[in-house]
Design a protein around this nucleic acid. Structure first.
Lengths: 340, 340
DNA sequence: ACAAGATGCTAAACGGTTTTAATAAAAGAC
DNA sequence: GTCTTTTATTAAAACCGTTTAGCATCTTGT
């Protein structure tokens, strides 16, 4: 194959200096007072031979990679996949590429990935942190490149973030169940001390407390297989026969939960009311349709990318961290409305 | 912040040459006859100050980026997201990062992305091609870095690929419907001339022809919104009242299709039998559960990554393209079994 | 006629690594 | 005691751009 041509080749071919070519390529022709005549000649040749500057050399020199790191818990989760898709689209428009990775909720994987982000001189990072990586996140922020957390934040760290109002959303969802007459409301959640899960649990407890009801919580760890999750939820429901409703704190628990409910032969919403956190295709279609708390995916993505781009611009010198807490939307469907 | 330290700093600190440090860092100490004493001294300092070679400089010099480009149709589609997740996990284990992007089925976006892959000297590419980018794919292959297509291949191009047996899978799915007594089977598919869609349609037509039935096909273009897809499927079903079953050629059409069927008040499987290509959480859970053709996601990912890593190794000089056609699994559920 | 400023362009340093070819010193051969 | 090898290390080129500082040459003002 013909070897890539470099800026040197262009310069040699026109018998001018490399510098001149570089200036022209970077739109500094005017600023550097290169004559229009020469500028056009260079541009024409560049076009003709389809010369493109070597991105890597460029990165090496400038320290900018034009890459944004996107670290999510699990890219195969529809919520993260959707956000990823929207962020990607936006980033590409501005000439940024996305380097993505999944933490699988594991701190050591997250640590490794952050270290990789640094090695690779990523221009900015968008991260859903795992537990216990405060130190690494802080050191990433210290590198002076934009860092945006989303889905959850870290109380101990002053970083930009975009999250939803987990407490209030859950509070409303649970209150809705209570208003529909449910009295014994279970709560199935991820065993995690991250902000989003804590807030959801507190929203649940807050709503119950206000009506003098007692909580009943099942925590499940992240790395369980689908089948194991179904089993755990089923046995939780079997053990707590007094429950007349369940709130699932994530969409994948809700989906496994529906399977568990099926297997136990329970009927929604009469035997058991159901509300899920985070909407999903399945919920709309399921019979009965499942009440869910929908996250504003477009809005989240928009804010995340906005903060990122503002940070990358470098024009705004204000180092103030931007923090957004977005509202969610409780979509009431049949699974939480027992009497018609 | 303390600026990154370079190989120069290490060399200077020990008053030895950069070269020596480089050799030691790259495990060539023995080969280059560097004394054990010096080797250990360097390794110790490197450890102490936590020196890491600058990846970008390394890439510039070696021409290797340790990055694999992953270009899928739509990362928010669970099928692609799952494959992406598995590929990612595998790649990271081998020290490769994933640069991902979605084509959204658009040729010009795909072209742009391929050009970016080249600019960035991606070590290898994993691609679900769109229509009309044969030329670009070929030129990417010509760059002499591994390229693996998946989900679909391009007949005109000699490339490695991993696909499933679309013809046979569809044939079996449709035959199953016929065996269950359905006579007028509709086919809702993506309006695309890519191999996977063509093969699915031919499988459908083949099965019908064998039983003397007449096809009835609805093609939908990729860039429609969810709501529009639902409307189109609904009107297709309304116009063709004689249909007693539908085969959906993708999971997202099936999901929209179920919504359409709901709205029309039709009952599955008595009014209408349903089979979907590509399984989905929803199908197992839906009532009635939906018969689906499950793709072997793990197997696909495994083969893709295997071909990629073999190619990256550089040890195997055989340039023969590896081509896999994997079988699928028809999961019969209630939606296609009218009489019990 | 001469200093000051504008014009159009370039040499050279830089970024951090890998790799080729070379060198000084020590060891071995005869 | 000279000649060749081996050993342990290194200088310098290469990768491919960006950027700083500067150099001729030509205008302009007085």
């Amino acid at each position: 194959m013909k070897k890539k041509l470099s800026i040197r080749d262009i310069a040699k071919q026109l018998d001018i200096s490399i510098t001149t070519v570089s200036f022209i390529m970077n739109g500094k022709a005017k600023e550097k007072r290169i004559s229009d005549e020469l500028t056009n000649k260079v541009l024409k040749l560049v076009e003709e031979v389809n010369y493109k500057p070597n991105q890597i050399a460029q990165s090496l020199r400038t320290g900018k990679s034009k890459i944004i790191g996107l670290m999510v818990e699990d890219i195969s989760n529809p919520f993260f996949a959707s956000v990823a898709r929207l962020i990607e689209g936006n980033a590409y428009e501005r000439g940024y590429k996305i380097l993505y990775c999944s933490t699988e909720g594991k701190a050591d994987k997250a640590r490794e990935l952050i270290s990789m982000f640094k090695d690779w001189q990523i221009d900015g990072s968008i991260i859903t942190p795992t537990e216990g990586i405060e130190e690494e996140i802080q050191s990433l922020i210290n590198e002076d490149r934009p860092v945006v957390l989303f889905d959850r934040y870290m109380p101990a760290i002053d970083a930009s973030y975009v999250v939803i109002d987990n407490y209030d959303s859950t509070y409303k969802g649970v209150t809705h169940l209570i208003e529909q007459g449910y009295k014994n409301i279970g709560f199935v959640t991820l065993d995690s001390s991250m902000s989003q899960m804590i807030d959801r649990r507190m929203g649940y407890e807050g709503a119950l407390a206000e009506h003098g009801l007692t909580p009943c919580i099942k925590k499940i760890s992240f790395d369980k297989s689908n089948e194991k999750i179904i089993m755990q939820i089923a046995s939780f429901l079997k053990k707590n026969k007094e429950l007349d409703a369940v709130f699932f704190s994530t969409n994948y628990f809700a989906i496994r939960g529906l399977e568990a409910i099926n297997r136990l032969g329970l009927t929604i919403p009469t035997d058991l009311g159901v509300v899920a956190f985070d909407d999903h295709d399945t919920f709309q279609l399921y019979n009965p349709s499942i009440t869910a708390i929908a996250q504003p995916i477009e809005e989240i993505s928009k804010q995340v990318i906005q903060i990122m781009l503002d940070g990358l611009d470098g024009t705004s010198t204000d180092t103030a961290k931007k923090q957004f807490v977005l509202p969610t939307n409780l979509i009431v469907r049949k699974s939480s409305v027992p009497k018609k």
